[in-house]
């Protein structure tokens, strides 16, 4: 029981290997995300892939929440549950359905092995990446960027949400560009579908 709890809460000694530092919540959520991602990629039926992709986004939102990134989790929740599934289904409604006997795609061995080699190569870099939540990680301990934002945001912008302050104030011009990109996406959809009006 205590062993399981230690695994669950990550309260083993700091020197324990990386695997032991992964808590039970992280491990189960990561397993869920990986399984749903694999099922989405391998599903034979497109509708099944769309449905499993919805489940994937559920796991991602919970994972973002666990890592205390509520803004990202909220975006994942709103976009994936509300928008992406609906738009994918609408697109799917314009296609014809082919009945399949098998649940999964047959795996193309050369492609799978290429992906496997890429995955192995990326795994080699894992040793140099700081542990999640480590106070020594450059992205956190950087006094000029992260710590500056965290300490100066309220004094300079008078809002409590640092993410929004970075988006709207410190990086406001970038956000303006992003908003214009969304706007241009709507126009591009009009052009691609040969329409002049949305409705």
């Amino acid at each position: 029981m205590t062993g399981a709890l230690a695994l669950a809460t990550g309260s083993l000694t700091p020197a324990s290997p990386v695997v032991a530092q992964v808590t039970a919540v992280e491990a189960s959520l990561l397993a869920f995300v990986v399984l749903t991602a694999l099922a989405t990629a391998l599903a034979r039926d497109v509708l099944a892939a769309v449905i499993v992709f919805g489940a994937y986004s559920l796991g991602m939102a919970a994972l973002y929440t666990f890592y205390r990134a509520p803004d990202v989790a909220l975006t994942e929740a709103a976009i994936s549950a509300g928008v992406t599934t609906v738009l994918l289904l609408l697109t799917l409604a314009k296609t014809t359905r082919i009945d399949h006997d098998s649940v999964f795609e047959s795996v193309n061995l050369p492609a799978a092995s290429a992906a496997g080699f890429l995955f192995a190569g990326l795994l080699l870099t894992m040793g140099d990446i700081p542990a999640i939540g480590s106070p020594d990680a450059p992205v956190w301990s950087n006094p000029d960027v992260t710590q500056w934002y965290l300490t100066e945001t309220y004094a300079q912008t008078h809002v409590e949400n640092t993410v929004m302050a970075v988006l709207a104030a410190f990086r406001g011009f970038d956000t303006f560009g992003e908003a214009i990109v969304v706007f241009a996406g709507g126009i591009a959809a009009l052009i691609v579908l040969h329409r002049e009006v949305f409705a």
Binding site: V86, L87, L90, T91, K94, G185, G186, A189, L190, L193, H194, R195, F198, A199
Partner: peptide, 12 residues
């Protein structure tokens, strides 16, 4: 909303 209406109507 525009993308939704567009995709619901489909390709012209």
């Amino acid at each position: 909303m525009g993308l939704f209406f567009l995709l619901a109507r489909g390709f012209n």
